[in-house]
Computed example of a mutant assay.
Amino acid sequence: MPVVEQSVVIARPASEVWSFVTVAENWPSWEASTVECEQLTDGELGVGTRWRGVTRILGRRLDWVTEFVEYEPLKVATSKSVESKVGFTATTRLEEIDGGTLFTYRVDSESGLGGIFGKLADPIVAKAYSRTVQASLDNLADLLTIDS
């Protein structure tokens, strides 16, 4: 199972980072592979909330729906794909540190990426996606600290 995990320090309090990253519509503004993202269920984010989105990985379009299976405000949110060609779990984790917030984003995906690229391509796809995730996290840090 390919795993991509990257972190960045954001010079903002965890509450501000959390408030931004837990709004589905904000994801395309910072996460480079996210083309579309919206919350499907009504109400506040929590376990059972569903998001729908479109991700582009190495030029391939992946439509998905996820459901949050873990939600601890200001600390961690984990969603699992419930509709997608590729099974995956995505976790965002925040930790208050000196100088701001350590933000970690982790994606665990099925081996072979559901046949989209094939099992032999897993290491190449994971490496490319890891670079994209790190660039996205750097973009998030810049976006949230522009006005500070």
Results as ranks from 00 to 15, higher is better:
S130M: 05
G59I: 06
G100L: 12
T101G: 03
E5L: 07
T34V: 13
E31Q: 07
T104M: 05
V3H: 04
D98I: 03
A141M: 12
D108R: 01
P13C: 03
P13N: 08
V17Q: 04
E96L: 08
G115W: 07
W18A: 14
V76C: 11
V69G: 09
A90T: 12
E31S: 06
N139L: 08
E67D: 05
D42R: 03
E38I: 03
T22H: 04
S15W: 15
E31V: 12
T49D: 08
E44F: 06
E38Y: 06
D142T: 12
R131M: 14
I10W: 01
E70F: 06
A128C: 12
R60K: 15
L143H: 10
F117A: 04
S111V: 03
R93T: 14
K75W: 12
E25S: 13
L144G: 00
D98F: 13
S109L: 14
E72G: 00
E70T: 11
E67N: 03
P123V: 06
R12G: 06
D63I: 05
G43T: 10
A128S: 13
A128F: 14
R61L: 11
C37T: 00
L120H: 08
Q134N: 07
S81L: 02
K127S: 10
E5Y: 10
G114V: 00
V82R: 01
T104D: 07
K119A: 12
E31Y: 09
L144C: 02
I146Y: 11
G87D: 09
I124E: 02
S7N: 04
A121R: 11
M1N: 09
I146Q: 14
R131P: 00
V35T: 07
V21I: 15
N26G: 11
S148E: 15
G99F: 00
A141P: 09
A32I: 07
W30L: 05
A77T: 08
S7K: 00
S84K: 01
S33M: 09
G59S: 08
F117Q: 04
S84T: 02
G114I: 00
V133W: 03
R131C: 02
F103N: 02
D108G: 11
S29R: 07
D63E: 02
E83V: 10
W51L: 09
V65H: 10
G115Q: 08
V4M: 08
E83R: 05
I146S: 12
F103M: 13
V8F: 02
G100H: 13
T34I: 14
E36K: 15
R131E: 06
P123M: 06
I116A: 03
R50E: 12
S79D: 13
L113V: 02
L45Q: 06
A121E: 01
T91H: 11
W27A: 15
V86K: 03
I116D: 01
W27I: 15
P2F: 07
A11P: 07
L74E: 14
R106M: 07
T49C: 11
A32R: 08
R52H: 05
D147T: 11
S111R: 00
T92H: 15
G118W: 00
W64P: 01
Y71L: 13
S130C: 03
A77S: 13
W51G: 11
F117Y: 04
R12W: 04
D142Q: 15
R131L: 14
E25K: 07
G118C: 09
S136N: 05
I57Q: 07
L40V: 09
